[in-house]
Design a protein around this nucleic acid. Structure first.
Length: 152
DNA sequence: GCCAACGTTGGC
DNA sequence: GCCAACGTTGGC
């Protein structure tokens, strides 16, 4: 089993939104970055666990845990001209973009803020804390996973 | 709202 | 293939 971190803007789709979805499950659409896509498409498997991260908000940080409920399949929002993630170069018979389904597991007791994570020597290898990092999906090693949840 | 960092596009 | 211009991400 693998571990991940996925970013979302709570104003768009936050941990509370996931918790309140039917089945507490939602597809994770809109990934439009090749590096993130490749990991999502090639490496994410059902049962993998995810740190749910809130970005672009008052206190950016990790707020909950989710699990992968379905592995990659074509991101249909890329086919829809009315969707803000529309990409005319993604075709039905050769999709460029993919998504997975993510299921709510639990919220953390508190937000583990980015500012706090940045201070930890143990996490210096994590892409999240590197300056200028913009990757919205990234792998998290088991040791870092355990360490981060130990901060809760 | 500002702006640094980064990715993508397209002219050459 | 280079690189300037532009768009986006996301912390602050």
């Amino acid at each position: 089993m693998k571990y991940w971190l996925m970013k979302s803007e709570p104003g768009e789709f936050g941990i509370d939104d996931l918790e309140n979805r039917p089945n507490q499950t939602e597809h994770w659409d809109g990934v439009r970055n090749y590096q993130a896509r490749n990991m999502l498409r090639d490496d994410m498997e059902v049962g993998d666990l995810v740190l749910f991260y809130h970005s672009n908000c008052e206190t950016p940080g990790i707020v909950g845990i989710a699990r992968i409920a379905r592995s990659a399949y074509p991101d249909h929002t890329a086919f829809d001209p009315n969707d803000k993630h529309f990409d005319p170069s993604s075709k039905q018979d050769s999709p460029r973009w993919f998504m997975v389904d993510v299921q709510f597991v639990r919220k953390l007791k508190r937000t583990i803020a980015l500012a706090e994570l940045k201070d930890k020597l143990e996490l210096q290898g994590l892409a999240l804390v590197r300056k200028g990092n913009r990757l919205s999906i990234m792998p998290v090693g088991k040791e870092m996973w355990d360490y981060i949840l130990g901060l809760e």
